[in-house]
């Protein structure tokens, strides 16, 4: 079982992805938590730009972070499949190349914010993604997350 995700690892992602030029955004509950949302989650969700160049940069950055990717798995990431789940690295990671509810990476990147060096989706994109996914666990979490959105954009801090 991988270690629990920590601040240090979020920093390492930002640093490694920055060095390799990976275009990424924290998404999902992990993204909301980085924005200040008080809740718990198990893994980091990263929205990564779907392009051959970004796929190659991502594979290199994951190797830098200590993910011992096999050749087969490297190829799957290079193919930029819509959803990739990695459970054999230093921490659990979900790579989302085409999240529900968000049209393009470019648009999300324009709206995104930087939190202590980490690129994070705008709270509205996190909400849109969860609304579009429409899973039971998303529906359960949406009322509180919407309340957080209103608090945050209302100048909550």
């Amino acid at each position: 079982m991988a270690a629990r995700f920590e601040y240090r690892q979020a920093e390492e992602i930002a640093a490694a992805f920055g060095r390799r030029g990976v275009r990424y955004l924290f998404l999902g509950k992990s993204g909301a938590i980085l924005l200040g949302y008080p809740d718990t989650t198990q893994d980091a969700d990263l929205f990564v730009e779907k392009s051959p160049g970004n796929g190659a940069a991502l594979v290199a950055a994951l190797a830098d972070l200590g993910f011992p990717l096999t050749e087969v798995h490297r190829r799957e990431i290079l193919a930029c499949k819509d959803f990739v789940q990695i459970r054999y690295g230093p921490f659990d990671l979900d790579l989302v190349f085409a999240p529900d509810g968000i049209e393009t990476f470019e648009e999300a990147d324009r709206r995104a914010v930087t939190v202590e060096g980490m690129r994070v989706c705008h709270i509205d994109d996190i909400l849109r993604s969860k609304e579009a996914a429409n899973r039971v666990k998303d529906r359960e979490s949406l009322p509180r997350l919407r309340s957080f959105r209103d608090w945050l954009l209302g100048g909550g801090k």
Binding site: M1, A2, A3, R4, F5, E6, Y7, A10, S30, I33, L34, G36, P38, D39, T40, T41, Q42, V115, E116
Partner: peptide, 13 residues
């Protein structure tokens, strides 16, 4: 943020 992340990420199978 460092403190918040310490308690936000949990690990269960």
């Amino acid at each position: 943020l460092r403190e918040r992340l310490k308690y936000a990420f949990i690990r269960t199978r």
